[in-house]
Design a protein around this nucleic acid. Structure first.
Length: 272
DNA sequence: ATGACCGCTGGAAGCGGA
């Protein structure tokens, strides 16, 4: 918990930082992850692309840094985790409802500090068109259906993760070379907008209504050095949480480090 | 516009990623 003064200056309230970070292999980048946790000290961190079998998840190193964790994983690909400082997250779901045959580790849900946290790794969908794009859109429909159930409960919920969607033209550097890419397709953007219209607030855009807010820079073609990125990682707030939003941003310094993931953490602070 | 990345798998090029 970090104490921050209220607008009135007459009282103090507790601010809770919640972050989402596509780590791109948690064991390969464990030192990067621990540096980020120690410097930024989020109360809650949602991680995607663990790329490790469950038995190789570095729970001990995280506990030594002050974080309890829950996770789902599979060999080589995917994998998601929810980290919480000094409090064990209470798992409510280990998979996204709607398709019993889908074994990919892309969804995890847990209660932390009175908030329901969903950690999301939405399928990339490339190449487009093709079966992977069909899977992406089908997964998106399952997410939209489940998100509707969550919002109906009236609980405080954060939907955090790598959505693999560039929501608008303002969320990517100027280019035409990706026009066929799954991340910018009208069907992908329409699904994201339909999710928002249930009543979710896109927290980073609420705090920063316009301008670049990149969370991903491709390893190829020196995209980081040229600051040609995209906004793919999003934290969506249920209606009762939206008024509690204090601040939001991107920890860009993480992307500049040696051995960095191609994503940087996106974060919010809430006045709980 | 295209493209020169990264890491894993398997044991070589091919893949997934975005």
């Amino acid at each position: 918990m970090v104490a921050v003064s209220s607008v009135s200056g007459l009282c103090w309230t507790d601010s809770v930082k919640i972050a989402s970070f596509n780590i791109n292999n948690i064991n390969k980048r464990l030192a990067n992850l621990l540096r980020w946790l120690e410097r930024e000290k989020p109360e809650v961190a949602c991680l995607q692309e663990l790329k490790t079998e469950e038995r190789c998840f570095p729970a001990g190193a995280l506990r030594s840094t002050g974080y309890e964790a829950v996770w789902v994983g599979e060999r080589s690909w995917n994998g998601v985790a929810i980290l919480s400082r000094e409090q064990i997250p209470v798992v409510t779901r280990l998979e996204l409802p709607g398709d019993d045959r889908d074994r990919q580790a892309r969804y995890l849900e847990a209660a932390v500090r009175g908030v329901l946290i969903a950690c999301i790794y939405l399928p990339n969908g490339n190449p487009q068109p093709g079966p992977k794009f069909i899977y992406k859109l089908a997964w998106f429909e399952r997410l939209i259906a489940h998100a509707k159930d969550l919002i109906t409960t009236g609980l405080p919920v954060v939907l955090a993760g790598d959505y693999n969607v560039v929501p608008t033209v303002e969320d990517i550097y100027p280019t035409r070379s990706l026009d066929k890419n799954a991340l910018v397709q009208p069907a992908s953007r329409e699904a994201f907008q339909r999710l928002l219209r249930q009543g979710w607030t896109d927290a980073l855009r609420k705090v920063h209504p316009s301008g670049p807010l990149w969370t991903f820079w491709d390893y190829k073609f020196e995209r980081w050095q040229a600051d040609k990125g995209m906004r793919l990682d999003h934290l969506l707030l249920s209606p009762q949480l939206a008024p509690l939003l204090i601040d939001a941003g991107v920890n860009r310094w993480v992307r500049a480090e040696d051995n960095a993931s191609d994503h940087a953490p996106a974060w919010i602070t809430l006045n709980l």
